[in-house]
């Protein structure tokens, strides 16, 4: 059962402005979401008495800081993203289940993602029922850019590593070209696509880190591709 409820949303979240309202044209169906959640359930439990399995339990996930359940062994990358300030809300969860690597490049969540927007809305509507106070679920800024999927032509760009080397001067002040990840993640030797997706996620402010948001804010698609090509070629 799918319910088009633009009008209803407009009432519920009166503050939503044009961009946000347009994106929120569909509100998920929790019943259908429960069906889809079966794909997730081999690793994640939710509901009364849910325990951590391969992945953390998902009770109260809305509003929770990423990587913050005591006693669960998260990847270093996810914990770091949580410390940077990644909070699970409608928008960040949507991005994460669309493509986990868009938000956390080295996440252990081995899931290809739900490509259909409505499927994600349904799953999130289901999961929302297990968070404390559905009325006060933090919503993303209405101006945020929603999609994490990059257009194929952006992913297909072949970067010029020589240009990337020049641009990389700005990166290696912090990220060591030698690949150390002490305090700051290593960015050498990454698959180009992961690198491109990660930088676009900062540029779109899906990822929280202010320095990375600032640096990527002025990188063009070509420049991101050039950097990806350069760092991919470093040992």
């Amino acid at each position: 059962m799918k319910v088009p409820v633009t009008a209803m949303l407009g009432l519920a979240f009166g503050a939503l402005s044009g961009a946000g309202a347009a994106l929120a044209a569909y509100v998920g169906d929790p019943e259908r979401g429960a069906e889809i959640f079966r794909k997730c359930a081999s690793c994640h439990a939710v509901g009364e008495g849910a325990k951590n399995k391969v992945g953390p339990h998902l009770n109260g996930v809305f509003g929770r800081r990423a990587g913050s359940i005591d006693g669960f062994r998260y990847s270093k990358a996810l914990r770091r993203m949580g410390d940077d300030g990644l909070i699970w809300n409608g928008e960040t969860l949507d991005a994460y289940i669309e493509n986990p690597k868009a938000l956390v490049s080295k996440t252990r969540m081995n899931f290809r993602g739900l490509k259909e927007h409505d499927d994600r809305e349904d799953v999130l509507a289901y999961l929302r029922q297990f968070s404390d106070d559905p009325q006060n679920i933090p919503e993303a800024e209405p101006t945020a850019v929603h999609e994490v999927d990059l257009p194929p032509e952006v992913l297909a760009l072949r970067g010029d590593p020589a240009y990337g080397e020049y641009l990389a001067g700005e990166c290696v002040t912090c990220h060591q070209a030698g690949g150390s990840d002490e305090g700051i993640p290593s960015i050498t030797g990454w698959p180009e696509e992961d690198f491109v997706i990660a930088l676009h996620a900062y540029k779109r402010k899906l990822r929280p880190h202010p320095v990375m948001q600032m640096i990527t804010s002025r990188l063009s698609d070509e420049e991101i591709a050039a950097l990806a090509a350069y760092f991919n070629g470093l040992e």
Partner: peptide
């Protein structure tokens, strides 16, 4: 506190990065 700690650790990483640079 988690963010502040992360920021400090990041500064340590930056120091190593700029020294190498």
């Amino acid at each position: 506190a988690a963010l502040r700690k992360q920021t400090y650790e990041e500064s340590v990483g930056w120091y190593a990065g700029i020294a190498a640079d």
